[in-house]
Each structure stands twice: as structure tokens, then as C-alpha cells.
């Protein structure tokens, strides 16, 4: 073997390695400090959150047992009968799933319309009044930060049991979340068209309609679809607090230990969500490909 790299004298070698070590020492120290902080935080959080490894390991067998209970009896000889027994409530569950989708749709659409209206008021490049921008932003943030199920809990008391509080809760949360995302999009648009429309004598509404909306529409639609996907998941649990949809039957089945019902309903929910995800993803790719053809 030919030595292309000459062997270094010991002193020189030591000097170079020391140099390298001191160069990475700072980085290493930071890593150690970070790890120590992380371990400390984990211990503190574990203490705070009542984490009990003993209890966990003692009870862990219950987890597979729980799932084993959920598996229905099934044999290939009587496949059809077993299946129909497992999914005995299919007509009712399908209707409830449909309700869930409608709650998500109505909530998303109303929330998106609200967010659409408010996002322009929350954009500093369209509204001169700092006060309006500030107030709209805080209102949107409030709607976004309070979880939808908390709104649902309160709305159930005001509007009574049923889908109405669920729809309203989703709508308000969606308005906050989309309004904030929309406003970020609007603040990043090209300002030249806006100036052009303003210089031709357009009113504020016309500036928004012709200067801003054409630039943001495809992005808005994509965000709204993503939010619909998220809201389908949200609507599925609205029933936990009595706000309509499939959640009602699910929580009842869990509470009453109807294990096979739980698994059947869970499967239906997961399948529905997968289908919705698949469709919205296709549509969003299409939208991004279009990038706003006109209007």
C-alpha cells in the first residue's frame, strides 16, 4: 500500500487534536447542558404528572387485554353473520357519521367565511388603524387558543344538547385559526397591485377585492380544506360533551364496556377520516398546481 498521507510527528498530532477538541468543546458543553435540562424537565414533569412506572408495568397487561376484548369473534365459516353481528348498528352509525361530516362542513364553512372577513381587518398592510388590527388579532387569537371542546361545553348549556353547539364551537375555533393563517397570507402578498388599484381610485372594498383577493384565493382554499380535515376529527368527539355526531355513541359504548361496539365505531371513524384526508389532499395538490387561475 502506498502511503499518500504522511504520518504526523507526535507533537504536531497532539497540537492538532487539542485544537479540534477545544473547537468542539463549546458545542459539546451546550449539548450536555441541554441534555441535563431535558432530564431535569422530564423528572419534574414526571413527578407533576403522577407518572408511576410501577403502576404502569403492573397494569400494562390490561392494554393488550383491552384490545383483545375489542376483537369480535370471527370465523371464516360464518364470516357474514359475524360481520353483521359486529356491525349491528351500521345504519345508525352511518347516519351519525354523516351527521359528523355535516357538523364539520357547516362549522368549517361558517368559520371560514368569518375568518375571510376578519383576516383583512387583521392585516397591517391593508388597514391603517393600528387599533383595528390589534383588536381583530387579539379576538382571532382568543377564538383560536380556547379549544373547541371548551366552547362546546359552554354552548351546550346555552343552546341545549344537539349538533348546534358543536357546529358553533367548530365555527368559532375555525374562524380564529383560519383568520390568523389567512391574515399571515395577506400580509405577505405583493403590495404593487394594491397600490395600482388604490391609485386608480378604488375604495377599500375594491382594493381588497381586486388587489388582494386574486393573490390569496388559492392559498385560502387550501388552508380551509386542511382545516376541514382537522374539523372532521374534532366533530367526531363533539358527542363526548353532548354536541352531536358519532362521539355520543362512542363514549356510551366505552362507558358501558361494549367492547366490540367500540372497535366497530373506531374503525368506521378511522376509515372515514382516511377517505376525507385522501380526497382533500388530492384537491389541495390540484389547487397548488393551479395557483389561482383568475378571479
Amino acid at each position: 500500500m502506498r502511503a499518500a498521507i504522511p504520518e504526523l510527528p507526535q507533537a504536531r498530532l497532539r497540537e492538532l487534536t487539542d485544537h479540534y477538541a477545544s473547537a468542539v468543546a463549546e458545542k459539546r458543553r451546550q449539548l450536555w447542558l441541554g441534555s441535563a435540562l431535558l432530564v431535569g424537565a422530564v423528572l419534574a414533569a414526571g413527578w407533576m404528572g403522577d407518572v408511576d412506572p410501577w403502576k404502569f408495568s403492573e397494569n400494562f397487561w390490561r392494554f393488550p387485554a383491552y384490545f383483545a376484548n375489542m376483537v369480535p369473534k370471527f370465523s371464516f365459516t360464518s364470516a357474514w353473520a359475524d360481520l353483521s353481528e359486529w356491525f349491528w348498528g351500521l345504519p345508525r352509525w352511518t347516519r351519525l357519521l354523516g351527521d359528523t361530516l355535516l357538523i364539520a362542513y357547516v362549522g368549517t364553512l361558517s368559520g371560514a367565511i368569518g375568518g375571510f372577513v376578519l383576516c383583512f381587518l387583521a392585516s397591517a398592510n391593508l388597514v391603517r388603524s393600528r387599533t383595528i388590527v390589534f383588536l381583530t388579532r387579539r379576538a382571532l387569537e382568543f377564538c383560536r387558543t380556547v379549544p373547541e371542546i371548551v366552547f362546546a361545553l359552554i354552548f351546550v348549556l346555552a343552546f341545549g344538547l344537539g349538533p348546534l353547539p358543536g357546529v358553533l364551537a367548530l365555527a368559532i375555533h375555525t374562524m380564529g385559526a383560519l383568520g390568523k393563517q389567512f391574515a399571515e397570507v395577506v400580509e405577505n402578498i405583493d403590495s404593487k397591485p394594491i397600490e395600482g388599484v388604490a391609485a386608480s381610485g378604488g375604495s377599500w372594498l375594491q382594493i381588497v377585492r381586486f388587489g388582494a383577493v386574486p393573490q390569496v384565493l388559492s392559498n385560502f382554499a387550501s388552508y380551509a380544506l386542511l382545516r376541514f380535515e382537522y374539523n372532521v376529527r374534532g366533530a367526531a368527539v363533539m358527542g363526548f360533551v353532548g354536541a352531536g355526531g358519532i362521539g355520543q355513541d362512542l363514549i356510551e359504548a366505552v362507558r358501558k364496556f361494549y367492547f366490540t361496539d367500540v372497535s366497530a365505531i373506531l374503525l368506521l371513524i378511522v376509515a372515514t377520516i382516511m377517505i376525507i384526508d385522501f380526497i382533500t389532499e388530492r384537491v389541495r395538490h390540484h389547487l397548488i398546481g393551479l395557483q389561482g387561475a383568475g378571479t
Binding site: 383491552y66 374534532g234 367526531a236 363526548f240 363514549i251 378511522v270
Partner: peptide, 17 residues
């Protein structure tokens, strides 16, 4: 991912209390 956090919570309450 299709199962919501709240549903998981419901299941785990059944398992670990």
C-alpha cells in the same frame, strides 16, 4: 393518527385509570 387525542384518552383511562 385517525383516532383523536380525546378518544385515546378515553381508552387509556380504561386501562390505567
Amino acid at each position: 393518527r385517525g383516532v383523536d387525542t380525546l378518544i385515546w384518552a378515553l381508552i387509556w383511562v380504561g386501562v390505567v385509570g
